[in-house]
Design a protein around this nucleic acid. Sequence first.
DNA 1: CTGAAAGCGCTAACAT
DNA 2: ATGTTAGCGCTTTCAG
Lengths: 349, 349
Amino acid sequence: VAHKKNKQPTLSEVAKKAGVGTTTVSRVINGGLRVDPGTLARVRRVIEALGYTPNQAARTLKGDRTRMIGFIIPSIADPFFSSCAEAAQAVAQANDSLLIVLATQNDPQVEIDSVSTLIRHRADGLIIAPANSKSKGLREILQRISAPVVALDRPITGSAIPSVVTDNFAGAQLATRHLIEHGYKRIACLTGEINLYTIHERIRGYRKAIESAGLECILNTSIQDYKSVEHAVENMLAAADPPDAIFTLKNSVTIHTFEVLQKLNVSVPGSIALLGYDDFELAATLRPSISVVRQPIDEIGHIAAQLLFERLLGPDKSRSSAGSSRPQQVQLKTHLIRRSSCGCSLATS
Amino acid sequence: VAHKKNKQPTLSEVAKKAGVGTTTVSRVINGGLRVDPGTLARVRRVIEALGYTPNQAARTLKGDRTRMIGFIIPSIADPFFSSCAEAAQAVAQANDSLLIVLATQNDPQVEIDSVSTLIRHRADGLIIAPANSKSKGLREILQRISAPVVALDRPITGSAIPSVVTDNFAGAQLATRHLIEHGYKRIACLTGEINLYTIHERIRGYRKAIESAGLECILNTSIQDYKSVEHAVENMLAAADPPDAIFTLKNSVTIHTFEVLQKLNVSVPGSIALLGYDDFELAATLRPSISVVRQPIDEIGHIAAQLLFERLLGPDKSRSSAGSSRPQQVQLKTHLIRRSSCGCSLATS
DNA sequence: CTGAAAGCGCTAACAT
DNA sequence: ATGTTAGCGCTTTCAG
């Protein structure tokens, strides 16, 4: 009984113990083809007895894939990205690969460092939600790596990198139009993080709808936290011509706006209607329930991972639900969920 | 079979191009000590020009750590675990390591497979929230691996594996007592998944408090989804002696209970008080706001990861915020958050 | 200061 | 059917 501490048994140890060559053991652990049934059984017994597990690092060095894919996102705790990660991990698992999750907090430097780390580890591929779609540094480093890359939620402009995003422009436009159809005339739009691709597109959608209807854009892009929402809303309410509807471009802003309106005892949608971008768990439970633009979150992660494996293995070999390969720039539709806060379903408010 | 696999440059390519030996290049990428400044600069230039990155697999094979740690949890999308993961990933990053996230959906077989995969990849260590604290198969495989393991949220009974959990018993007991102090006499407890360690402990806490006060346990452990909550609540309400308070043992049950109560127009806490285990984002925003037992989620993930790196590197070398090493069985305190639904702060309800 | 050479564990020709 | 052997890219003695 060898007490080599901290050491897993090796293939050649198995070979020695089983009285065979290393090639035979290698064949056994790789399916056992072209191996005598008796030998096969014996080797398997030794493997079992020793608790042998092939060393992936050695395989990798020999030229095999690492069976690891990187997943670079702003935050793991964010429900949107954690749901994407869950879906991507499932696809990775189905393809016998590991998902390595890296959170960047939207910091471009951390993002680049993360890519470097993944390259060092020779990840087979890479899924990334870039902090800045236009970052030159990121585009450069991404261009240099040989592993396939898929962009998630936000494309990487000026590159041929495949991406899976939702149609933020159409979603915001549709939502704004819906508010317009309700008859609201002064529709404010609250957001922050205007350098994000998604937010930028949503603003465009809002603008388009508002201007097409000949209304006035009331856009506040300085929102950061609860305080700033409170400040913004109080100012609007105190103005000579207060808004009759608010369109919020991201989850946290929607929630903060709801909270402020609730705190100020402003009737929703009576005095001011509210519609938010991105659904959230309790949107239907709040009173009034919050109308939102919903994105197919799971699909984003799922398709991004599938796209990656298709490029990795060739379209036919990846474990896809569908056999056909997809286009390289996927844009998913969003969905308007009509609840009470926009003025729909007044019966249940 | 012409794959356009742009291989990464290797160390010896750098050496050749720089006109030095591989040893020198190795020294350069490992800090550049004992290397002539001129040579160092030249080698660095070549590395830069070639975009060389050391191959982690080769280093690993040579005996170095893999700089990867595994993180096995039931679900990534679950806010509790994704927050833990975020904290753990930050610690991993600080220790120059990768976090590999595996979701098991509480399936014991997937769990064991996940551990195997991580062993194959020679992860340096392993953080796991076991689906079943008493699983023999899991304990066995965990015992066999040489890498350090830390249990998260749920201990692994019958083993010396360090764990980071919260005091579920005390938390539930405190919460139940709080309800009792409010004067409620018929306090129901709703839950599912009773095979989970956490739930088991919470039930114990509830029982202890109820029995100590000479009250009757009204325990329903068959909750699974909204429907089952609806059914349970309707039955309770229709009974001759309906409860005057409900204590829910997990997030989803709390929310479903709130929804059912809201739908049935039952006044909370007027007719029935509600108190839930585990805080959630909109608990304070709902009307009434929901009182809860809050766990220090980030700390759980953070401490678990720190514990792991302490065992991995020795207490002094890990990037801990504190220099001192921690006990191996950490039990964190929970906190009762008094909001309106239990009967506190009636002014703001 | 610097380099030659010996492996780390595995796979894949190439033998037998 | 099975063994022999040559590396994969890197670190690390051990000599210059």
